[in-house]
Nucleic acid binder design. Structure first.
Lengths: 257, 257
DNA sequence: ACCATAATATTTACAGCGTAAATATCTGGG
DNA sequence: CCCAGATATTTACGCTGTAAATATTATGGT
């Protein structure tokens, strides 16, 4: 008994939003490699071809999914709202972290003539949030660096990142270098970590199997590295590198590059 | 007229090496996305299934191709006599763009066989060579971060990188953080740059089309960034970030982390 | 209220994919 | 000399993205 063809009755069951949401959910659950139009359609109770009424093609689907994820990145002081930068009592810009719970300490809008807002904690906030978002959607980092189109959420992310650097006083050349260095770290760390993604507790078995499967005496430092990572999660690696980069950039900023 | 089945006469025409070489060549020429077993077979004058006598499956093919590329990375320790194949831009040991002022000891020696203690120029050499290799084989960076198996050339690369850091005096925790920060930069920069890969001279058209296709007044800093990159190649971005990181690591090394 | 048109879903079809299995042929070792 | 193993082709299966044709329903104009 084949399904009835033609437009179904009732309020439209399928929308672009529902397609993108289901796409994100499916990619989160099973990875993006096994996501196919037919399987995504089935998840939505529809044939695969029905999706093409709401999505140009698979690349367009990916672009929409990625922009949905990009919209999850927490941007400090989005637009002209209040700046969530840490106040005057901000410590050595070490720990600006987009939290799960409370909003960061808001301060009234910065006077344009006043000393520039704390670019470092703003950049740190954004980077940590982007990193968390990539970890929440492990397929998204690879898409980010692919050549799928750039949607509005990604544009907003890039624009505010660049604006913060500009308003912090970075001049043309240094601004570009600073921007790319931070972005490289975010993307690089995400891709490296996700390449070795494994369920919690899986590391012991993985490490043991690795050490059994290769000539340990030929690569002793690599073996030591693997043994190290069996015990140490390396959760702090992202923020370590981030702070290293931000510290270096701040040094260059005050000396004029 | 079907080809004759069965093993062909003459010395074996197909070997694993020939398959991997052809795979690398095809991926270099047309990208890895359009590389299929049947098309690679045709390139070698053979049916697609013939490849399975020399390669377990497509992942094994990719692993072999990636390890061939990894073997191109010039490791200063085990140095072949040559400089990195790019030659002209052999990294100069201490000439960091950032931090030339306060950086301790810009060593004048760029000899790859330099004493072990010069970890910084050795790490720089290796990173620059790895970066050049990724640029020469644009498909390889994505494979590097995927979960294809790690072949011997990659193991050697990782082992010597870790050994250099260890012999430079980095202690456990800092060694791991330093290693990953440098690797993240290499991989992150490669992926970001390759995502926007375009033929030389293509940047003007691309930039103009981008600026036409989005609300410039809504994202003024992004628009400015695009305009900037139409004129500036950004070739120096990799080494800028690399030196920034290496300078910071050296500072932490001497202060004991 | 009616009808033309647009929107939405299904169905069918096609070329291509990775690869398992069966078959044919050639090479080297006892 | 012959047989076992290596190597190549052929065929086949289920999957992929998506173009084209078809069927049904919702909507806007009169």
């Amino acid at each position: 008994m084949p399904k009835q063809a033609g437009r179904p009755s009732g309020r439209p069951t399928l929308t672009r939003d529902r397609v993108l949401d289901a796409g994100v959910a499916m990619a989160d659950a099973e990875g993006i490699g096994t996501l196919s139009m037919r399987r995504l359609g089935k998840e939505l109770g529809v044939e695969g071809m029905a999706l093409y009424n709401h999505v140009k093609n698979k690349d367009d689907l990916f672009e929409g999914m990625l922009d949905r994820v990009a919209a999850e990145i927490d941007l400090p002081a989005t637009g002209h709202a209040d700046a969530p930068s840490v106040g005057a009592d901000a410590p050595s810009a070490g720990a600006a972290v987009p939290g799960t719970g409370s909003a960061p300490a808001a301060q009234s809008r910065a006077d344009p003539a006043a000393p520039r807002v704390d670019w470092r904690s703003r950049a740190r906030w954004r980077a940590v949030s982007a990193h968390a978002t990539f970890m929440r959607h492990p397929w998204s980092a690879a898409l980010w660096t692919s050549s799928v189109g750039v949607g509005p959420a990604r544009m907003r992310y890039l624009d505010t990142a660049l604006r913060d650097l500009r308003e912090a006083g970075f001049a043309d050349g240094l601004l570009d270098l600073a921007f790319h260095t931070v972005e490289n770290h975010i993307v690089g760390h995400a891709m490296q970590e996700l390449g070795f993604s494994l369920a919690p507790g899986e590391m012991e078995a993985m490490g043991a199997e690795l050490l059994r499967s290769f000539p340990v005496e030929e690569y002793p430092f690599l073996a030591e590295h693997i043994r190290y990572h069996v015990e140490e999660t390396g959760d702090d690696a992202f923020e370590f590198g981030l702070d290293l980069i931000l510290d270096g950039l701040e040094r260059l900023r005050v000396t004029g590059g």
